[in-house]
Nucleic acid binder design. Sequence first.
RNA 1: GGGUGGAUGGCGGAAUGGUAGACGCUACGGACUUAAAAUCCGUUGGCCGCAAGGCCGUGAGGGUUCGACUCCCUCUCCGCCCACCA
Length: 862
Amino acid sequence: MARYEPKTIEPKWQKRWLESGIFKTPLTPGGKSKFYILDMFPYPSAAGLHVGHPEGYTATDIIARMKRMQGHVVLHPMGWDAFGLPAENYAIATGVHPAQTTAQSIAAFKRQIQSLGFSYDWEREIDTTNPNYYKWTQWIFLQLFKKGLAYEAHVPINFCPSCRTGLANEEVHQGGCERCGSAVIKKNMRQWMLRITAYAERLLQDLERLDWPESTLAMQRHWIGRSEGAEIEFRVARFELRVSVFTTRPDTLFGATYLALAPEHPLVDQITSPSKKTAVEAYCQEAQLKTDMERTQVAKEKTGVFTGAGAINPVNGETIPIWVADYILPHYGTGAIMAVPGHDQRDYEFAKKMNLPIKPVARPLEGEAIFERAFEEDGIAINSGEFDGLTTADFKKRMVEWLSKKGVGRPRVSYKLRDWVFSRQRYWGEPIPVVHCQGSCGGVVPVPESGLPVALPDVSRYQPTGTGDSPLSLIESWVKTKCPVCGSAAERETNTMPQWAGSCWYYLRFVDPYNDQAPWDQELQKIWLPVDLYVGGAEHAVLHLLYSRFWHKVLFDLGLVSTIEPFMKLRHQGMILAYSYQDKLGVYHGYDEIDVKDSKAALEATGEELSSRIEKMSKSKKNVVNPDEVIKQWGADTMRLYEMFMGEFELSKPWDMRSIEGVHRFLLRVWRLFDKQTPSLEFQVPSSKSPANTQRPAPSADANLRVRHRTIKLVTERIENFKFNTAITALMEYVNALTAKGAAREDLATLCILLSPLAPHTSEECWEMLGEAPFVSLAPWPVYDEELAVEEKLAIAVQINGRVRETLTLNAGSWTQDQIAAMARENPKIAKYLENAKIQRVVYVPGKIFNFVVANPAVVSE
RNA sequence: GGGUGGAUGGCGGAAUGGUAGACGCUACGGACUUAAAAUCCGUUGGCCGCAAGGCCGUGAGGGUUCGACUCCCUCUCCGCCCACCA
């Protein structure tokens, strides 16, 4: 009797898979259908793998393995998104070169990932910090530059004083730095920007083609933030100046009672009247000093200051005051608005506070107007002269036409999306491959392709300077160079690219990772793209997934890729949470009953109890589960199976150490079915009921035919549809049936194949025990017969008015409605309900339900 | 405030118009054992009942339907994302 020892069999098969090269993807699919299945590659942190990582990796591995066995040629690679701040911050603290820590982290991550037995083609491994890789990241940047999509700008940007670097709009959350949480300040700095706004419309439109989660599509739509409306020009009274405003409600123009400009608006200085100058300047300066965080926190109370100037409403000639208010964002629309307090809640609040008039210009379609707050819905125009009575939608159109005709307005579409701040004043990133020529070129000169990669030099100190220059600026020998065009003295660009650069195109490099002539081969790109299935965390919904779509579209326009979208189907894994046990004082004690046993016992004396909650895993809550320990205790297959068994893939769910034992027991039961030395379970223990202590004879191949076919069907469909938890329950039921009834060789072979994507090591070992040739991983996936995949016995529920009163058990076959009806009527339990009852109709769902709808069911009392 | 998911036994969850609670965990009872562990068998939503059986039950309330966890309306609570975007 061989024991089930994951510790022995798992490394054994991992070694065999690697040595035999069975998971190596050929250069091309060679006439077969391709399947490109990709994980969001990880940032290899020093903390090691989190149990959340393997959830997605296991899912893709299961599908990759099944697809491979179904005859597809599968591209399933893995790599490392290795530039980033943690390694750099560690370097600042210790002086250890980030390349060194990164290499260590990659090695640790790789060991952990490999210990789970994923079927990656490791020969295609990518590391974004490898010069052979980032050479091409820089090359793509130069293509963007040549197309005018990368440009230098001196604009106020979000700057994190703690990380001492500029940030992209997408990296700021509620006014704070995404990474460290510090309040972000505005800083005017020279920046490299990418013109992502030029692609706003296409990034929005093409979302419709994608099989992505609705929430992610919604986030991208929201982030792009398209609004249709109009730009309207107001003359400034007593000046030869005009102020343009953007509005989505041109129909409310009659209701504009003031104009508001952002404090940063360029006209503020020009129009402010002398008597207001001091107050306005003070207000604008204060707004400048406020961080975004403060500016939004104070958002509840509107503030502003009157400029003393007036604007003339083009539609009725009324003069309305111009205010400055910091609830107007400088970078959206025109940085100025026409305020309509009657129909915009923010303007309403401002008007109330400043005692400005509120003029309703629309009424609800039905009911009375109540003006305790702004009426923001669509309605019917009032107080709007000749336009009275128009619906909001019609009025919008008419007003835009009118404005266009008069030359004081035009239709306009605005986007919330802003250009991507692409430079970082940090060390551990790809150098931006340009030089600043001090000679006749006099400006930015791209490094020619022959000069790539612009290698990241070693530095003596990694500390960001905080002055807007990266640590690279301190290496004079590196900074001082010659202009590649005119040969004059030149300085290298010292900013580096953001974390997101490398991940913008890695899926392309996987199709051709060793190419040193081009980032990828044209033919190979045509063959393998797009990525058929992409799996990773939802936290990248607007960062990585938007940036890489943008790059992909640029590459498409350059003729370098032939699909307009990179990732056709996307799924996110749900977050893995954990129990945390906390005492009255708020001290955390661990993540499961065993872990907190001692604490519990100690508290028992005082009568105090630990409260448990489901929360995100974090060190401070002492509820972080270490994958290494899980594998050590239970084995990789149990870990894989448990991660999939926990619940719906896309939902968050808590880790429960008690439940993991259940799937482990399942593997033990599987093992015993195969292990010839082990007596069949029922006879292992002699009992009075079954005295024979003998091996149960194997049943005929047909004995479990139906359950076998049904299991094939269920497992296949459920894996295909990401229902891994119920794919496992189907296998559990099959194993329970085989344990009870005995298993034919066909059953064992089928079980082994079906289980192999989920628990590959155990399956390989069982396959070997069956005496089959090596590698169940290469076995063809079984097909099922639809007719055989139904139960042998039909159970038809017979209902009276929708309530089940009896179940008829019949042999599978074609039964007519009349036959079923006759049997149901004859059934005594049903008959007693039908006595004296008037049957109005019957509903028959073949093979499932037979329902008598009766007017006056007999009252059955016992 | 906007978006997007979710709420089902003691617990994790199954069932997307057709027998609610599959599968797993826990607990209890039994077998085996000197004993324990492991393993196996049985029970395990609630209430009434010796039983047969009946009634109630999927966050709350209403609706559609022969039939609703599932569809529609109203509401409550929770997660995640975004948020003064005119």
